[in-house]
Design a binder for these strands. Structure first.
Lengths: 174, 174
DNA sequence: CTTTTTGCAAAGTTTTTGCACTATA
DNA sequence: TATAGTGCAAAAACTTTGCAAAAAG
């Protein structure tokens, strides 16, 4: 279904008794222009729009991402500790899963047909309709293990792989 | 590694400079006697122990489940909305994944070698050590769809499958 | 006896809600 | 112009933290 245009988003919303608003359009726009592999938390989305000079209230953000997730437009990810992240919900061929380092939260995407197939099979087996499937592969880097994880690890220690991947490079996201 | 005895738990803790306490032992005991397919949130664990007349402070619960998760004794699940659930971390042959109904949060376990294999492969590819992998299959029952999900669904509506699965049957969990 | 762990209460995060106002269909 | 959506501020839900007392090794 994606990419959505203003028109198709409106149609999608209206068909369910919901309305197209500038806020919803802007939020979708952000996600559609987010570089591959990036995902935003509600707060990050809030700040991004704020910095862009198009502020939207935080509660509207929360309400919108939840709505758009239910509609199947966004995908809710629970990768890092604490807060949820959202990304565009891609159709099957682009559907992806995540490898996460539980030390630094760095994430890497990967594709897998077999995982999707397995998920479909299990949903079917229960007579349920598949909405989404997410495989989270939790890992730790050998360096962290060598450093004594999980007991003694200097509090300021970071994986060598933990490049500045924390903050999505906010430069020019549409 | 599981099942843990008091002795092996103590050894495991001590080897990392941690200590065996009655609280940690009780918590492990609860999980070891939890019927298959059940998992508890911090709060549920708190109430369970309270009702049993062996109260443990909520902050200790939080600290303990986090520690035991890092140690690989427990497994942290993010299935339902809002709060995390914990269960015993089973070794490979018993490792399982979950089908979840996003309407009623009912969960069903399933096993899959291929998913584990896929996870190992991806972790390896990145030079990372696999700690855990969790496949969450989000589904919705056809009845809910027929009732108009996701837009118009009576607020009190529940899947016919949504038996009293919400509260783990607290009857006599060791 | 040194160091970790606990329980408590207070504070921190993240998310939701009520309500008057505004905008959409 | 009826109904859905917004923004605000207040509340709720969940989790973490500081600290003094207690317990483990």
């Amino acid at each position: 279904m994606p990419p959505y245009t203003t028109t198709s988003l409106k149609a999608e919303l209206n068909s369910r008794g919901w309305r197209l608003t500038p806020q919803r359009e802007k939020i979708l726009h952000v996600f559609q222009n987010l570089p591959r592999g990036n995902h935003l938390s509600a707060e990050e989305l809030f700040h991004l729009l704020e910095q862009r000079g198009e502020p939207i209230s935080l509660s509207t953000i929360y309400r919108s991402v939840k709505l758009m997730t239910r509609m199947g437009i966004l995908r809710e990810l629970e990768l890092a500790e604490g807060h949820k992240h959202y990304e565009l919900h891609q159709p099957h061929p682009h559907h992806h899963h995540h490898v996460v380092c539980i030390q630094c939260n760095r994430t890497i995407e990967f594709n897998s047909d077999s995982v999707l197939k397995q998920s479909l099979r299990q949903a079917e087996r229960e007579g349920l309709q598949l909405i989404d499937c997410q495989l989270n592969v939790m890992t730790i880097c050998p360096e962290a293990l060598r450093m004594g994880w999980p007991s003694s690890l200097p509090s300021d220690w970071a994986c060598s792989r933990a490049i500045s991947e924390e903050e999505p490079s906010n430069s020019q996201l549409s």
